[in-house]
Design a protein around this nucleic acid. Sequence first.
DNA 1: CTGAAAGCGCTTACAG
DNA 2: CTGAAAGCGCTTACAG
Lengths: 345, 345
Amino acid sequence: MTSKATSIDIAYKAGVSQSTVSRALRNSPLVNLETRQRIQAIAKELNYKVDKNASNLRMQNSQTLALLICEDPTNDDSMINPFFLSMLGSITRATARQGYDLLVSFQQLSSDWHADYEDSNKADGIILLGYGDYMDYAHKLDKLIEKNTHFVIWGAEHNNKAVLSIGCDNHQGGYIATEHLLGAGRQKIAFLGDASGHSPEFRDRYLGHVAALNAAGIQADKQLQHHAINTEASGYDAAIALLDKGVLFDAIFTGSDLIAIGAMRALKKRGVTVPEQVAVVGYDDIPIASFANPALTTVKQDTQFAGEILVESVLKLIRGQEVSQRLIKTSLVVRNSCGTKADDL
Amino acid sequence: MTSKATSIDIAYKAGVSQSTVSRALRNSPLVNLETRQRIQAIAKELNYKVDKNASNLRMQNSQTLALLICEDPTNDDSMINPFFLSMLGSITRATARQGYDLLVSFQQLSSDWHADYEDSNKADGIILLGYGDYMDYAHKLDKLIEKNTHFVIWGAEHNNKAVLSIGCDNHQGGYIATEHLLGAGRQKIAFLGDASGHSPEFRDRYLGHVAALNAAGIQADKQLQHHAINTEASGYDAAIALLDKGVLFDAIFTGSDLIAIGAMRALKKRGVTVPEQVAVVGYDDIPIASFANPALTTVKQDTQFAGEILVESVLKLIRGQEVSQRLIKTSLVVRNSCGTKADDL
DNA sequence: CTGAAAGCGCTTACAG
DNA sequence: CTGAAAGCGCTTACAG
């Protein structure tokens, strides 16, 4: 097989200069229409593809976006947070639609990435996913800012205004979940998740939960909140701990579906029926949620839309256009675990 | 902020030529150790990163792999096959470990990709995932071969020997699943999945299933096989159809976990108990499997290992090294749906 | 409308 | 051990 065709080969075949070939392939109106079409036909015939490296080098950009998914090292290495995976799908599609390529990397919080991608011209911009614990990565973001990197971060609004964040409205999500439970007649609603400031998303969900309680004239009870990280096992442990405390509750709202699944397992183990005795509402609407038993009512984040906005935003940043923080509304997916829908199994 | 540093900036600062800088940064022993270290220090200080486009252009490679995940268009757009996602994770990691970047793309079977990545020098090699229906893509592979593209395909062994395929031993998987059911005393085992030649993976699983039956002196009963594609809904429909046929069965082996989950829903709906009346074994060990009720016994494919082999194989292809087909052994994950493990909920 | 020429930032044979 | 120079394959101002 002969080596790859270059624009010079085409120029030779078409009897024009290499510059004209380059213009024709970019469909420049400067080139005579007929010549242009002839050149394009030859290019197709020779199976020519513009060399991205040469083109990028010359144009000083890469038409590529980098997606850095940062997993919490506490999670099982083999199991990626399903929510991220859903985002990955929509980001990939949105990137392709904009004519960009997508470089994907899974990083540990601890590893050293900085602006590696953009500095080496491998990507024009970066999308950061899953930077759960604010404390741990704040200084890395500072470095990105300092170097003028184009990046968007998925998640809660940032106190550093130089950081562009796009995220779902966690406060609203916590609010509608709790509101729904209250509407179903539940009064003693427990919260399982991280309510400290370490995980801004979880904290906002908790605050929304509290706000809904207050709106109904109910005071949040410190006894009804228990810490849990985003794993099934942690949800199980937290529910058991809650049960062991001896406080009464008729519902649980959790910071994530994984926690909810774990909590339901604990309830079942202890002979507590869901939703009859305790209603459960999760967060994320991961695939597992609909297959849980009973099927889990949960707060859904529109990953399709979120991916699009994320991509659109970095691209705007790259083009030097105006962009601003953005909060995406969540919606409640009502299934059986909250007791307000007939069991349809 | 000043613009990006180049090797010339470093050369100036270090008082050497640009060539020496380039050599020093690549850690060439040709450069005096002391000079080398001085240059590297300056590079670090200036936050210098080699421009990938320039470097790749010059070296005529890209240090990048492309991963093309091809989804079956029949699937829900928002839901990517969880098995692929698991592979994606391990491929990403394996690629990074080898010092390569990973370009990811989700493609529809119908879309036109060919060797776009390699032709444009965006990637040195391609990994193809999920090319389920052989009939539909065979001609595309021919094009890749014709163009001398470096690619590996995940899945069943290919009849075109020019195609390098890496996959799990589906025949063996079907065999051990069925063997296990037989060992648990089941005699009338149904198979739900695509047993036609359109999906080589499913077909091999089916053939392994039949082989295990035969080894036990049992003839496969045509009545006990029902077509299903890889979705929960299709599994549900297939199980209902099987039930409606009126044939008796005491176990179901399915081509995938998704099908199994759907089948279990159908059984539950019709009042058939799992595993007491009908044992169920799935395939893939997707996360949902362990959360199903009862937890699903299934054939696990080692995605961690598979990802590594896949990456290693394309890399060998790129380097012109010898590579060969490879079949990875599967293992059975025994849970509750097959009736041989105590319910530990 | 077209061509000759410069240059993007590297790597590496060649010469010393 | 080091430097001057060529060249990877493009894009685009400049000149006509």
